[in-house]
Design a protein around this nucleic acid. Structure first.
Lengths: 354, 354
DNA sequence: CTTGGCACTCCAGCTTGCAGAGTGCTAAAG
DNA sequence: CTTTAGCACTCTGCAAGCTGGAGTGCCAAG
């Protein structure tokens, strides 16, 4: 079952050629391209073997060969050699990511720059904050009547806000006290512990502090009850996919774009990638989702202070330039990790904040 | 040049039919449909006149007639009678908008529900806050080193945040004092006045308060120096446009989608609509942008407490169901105005206004 | 195992032919 | 003067048939 070296070379050049040209590769072309001294007839024999192994196929009797998903899989796993990315691309990435921004912008920029460099759609899953991140700061602002705006800042500098309906009206000073109490009590503690603690808190309140604490606890509780926010996934450059000839069919495009707005399936895939380290690739139907049938997903996890918190990547046609995309995704993940962690430790290289 | 009543009826039914079917309308069909006792031949004569006036045209010698942009214009200006929208659509709109949310979510929901009901792309331009809205609350959070997170809440409950680089490190208590000073001094004052005041402030500071004020003023100044945030426009349901046969050509779609990500041109159009009151319609090339060549834009301004702050609308093919879209856009604008103002006044009306 | 040769297959593009739909014009009728 | 019937004409869309090019599979010879 193992491929002999000659077959490997031929498969590799076939796939490279197909990725570059987008058209079935014939034996004559391949014989010339591969750099081996072989006649087209010999190449045909090898092709026949590869076809039997399910690594290539012909679209019809008399076309050249095209890689199958399994072919791509072998290619990315064993044959492909990643290209280091070009200096000005690296520069652009650094330019865009190593800059003084809050996490939200950082993530959006990362997604966008990914899509621009790869000329594909960029994906970044927002950090799984809730449980892992520490609490940093909370603030209550009276809007009107019982409506109170809760502003929550997590350790990484992300700001979350939502409006809650209080049980009665509160004066501004009450709100300030509540926030103070909360900020002093919980600073630096992880959100999951905060949540846990809030459940017990209310009973054992001392009489003295009770009112303020009661308020603070109640508010925080209803603010934190929030389920996952809807915008965990940032997608950019979707329209790049419209230039891809494989997706010329509008219905396929439609399904893909629907997947971008639904986000659920994509999040599931990105979630899987979070558990591995390094770049992970889903080719075509390997993902298990119909909408991604002729697409591949190249992803890599990123981390904050050494702890994996999310993934990013790009999505494009199965026929994409893996050699380059892989390193772009890889580096972007590293840079983003650095920027997010760096912003935590307080330093970063350059001075101006844009 | 004026249309006689018979011609009007024929033009109206032609356009209605064309909007419904999407195909050129022939004289025979039109004669039957219009409810007038006319032979196809007569209809043909009238068509000939309409064609001369530039209101209809035939795609080729022997097809039926199709409305031109000018035809649509006459249609929406003088012939069309808007349909009140269906009860459950109204219900859905209210459900989605008359609910207790912060402005950001409100706007996103409005855009989304617009796109869902119209089956087109929904647009909402975020409120032009900066100058018009009043300052409500500010908060400074120390991130690390000199990096300070500034959280700004405007009168309508919108939360804006950005990171600034301070000139030196500040202790948490300094930051609290600065925020307090700022909140007390400027609460309720319009942002533009705040900005203005900040310019003069620094000189006349009393010695006593000077350090804190200096800090507060400097921080607020660099935070407010922010130019327009990039995400002023929320677009939803773009993928609905992929089902439109007129846009079956991927290149046209591409240009349209690029316009969605660029946003500049669309913002310009929506801006125009802000100056008029009521529903405004751009048909095809009237907009002046190539990307919108075969599209129409139906927009309406919305307001907060009686003052127009933004516009919303939908974008779709020129051949869209104007009768319904117009009232949907209209009502959505009213509802959104109500919800945004309502959140200000503290209550919100259970039943619909309009 | 490799190679040249040959028959075979399939696609893409082109032309042809035809049915269907709808127009424009003309001449007659109201 | 307006409306109508009739007829010739034009254009599209579709199916069928043809041709050249590209590439394969197989066989027999090196």
């Amino acid at each position: 079952m193992a491929l002999n070296p000659r077959a490997e070379i031929l498969l590799k050049t076939l796939i490279e050629r197909y990725i570059a040209e987008g058209q079935p590769v014939g034996s004559r072309t391949l014989a010339r391209q591969a750099g081996l001294e072989l006649s087209p007839a010999t190449v045909r024999n090898v092709m026949s073997d590869l076809e039997e192994m399910g690594l290539v196929r012909s679209p019809h009797t008399s076309a050249g060969r095209v890689p199958t998903e399994r072919g791509y899989r072998v290619f990315v796993d064993t044959l492909l050699q990643v290209k280091p990315l070009h200096a000005n691309e690296l520069h652009k990435l650094e330019q865009e990511i190593l800059t003084n921004q809050d996490p939200q912008h950082l993530i959006e920029n990362a997604s966008q720059v990914l899509s621009e460099i790869c000329k594909l759609a960029g994906l970044v899953m927002a950090p799984r904050r809730e449980e892992q991140l520490a609490f940093r700061h909370i603030d209550f602002v009276n809007l009107s009547g019982r409506r109170i705006l809760v502003i929550l800042v997590t350790q990484d500098g992300q700001v979350h806000n939502r409006i809650i309906q209080a049980d009665r009206e509160y004066s501004p000073s009450e709100l300030v006290q509540a926030a103070n109490y909360f900020n002093e009590t919980y600073a630096g503690i992880s959100m999951s512990e905060v949540k846990l603690s809030l459940l017990g808190e209310i009973q054992q309140a001392s009489d003295d502090m009770q009112r303020v604490m009661h308020l603070a606890v109640n508010m925080a509780r209803s603010a934190l009850a929030e389920e996952e926010p809807p915008d965990e996934l940032v997608v950019s450059g979707e329209s790049n996919l419209m230039d891809v000839p494989e997706l010329g069919d509008v219905r396929k495009l439609r399904r893909l774009f629907d997947a971008f707005t639904t986000k659920r399936d994509l999040l599931h895939l990105l979630d899987q990638s979070m558990r591995t380290s390094g770049v992970k690739i889903f080719i075509g139907t390997e993902s298990g989702y119909d909408a991604l049938a002729e697409c591949s997903l190249v992803t890599a996890p990123y981390s904050v202070d050494g702890r994996v918190v999310g993934t990013l990547g790009v999505i494009g046609p199965t026929r994409m330039a893996y050699e380059q995309v892989i390193s772009i995704v890889d580096i972007t993940a590293r840079l983003l990790s650095g920027a997010l962690s760096g912003s935590e430790r307080g330093g970063r290289l350059e001075s101006n904040d844009r």
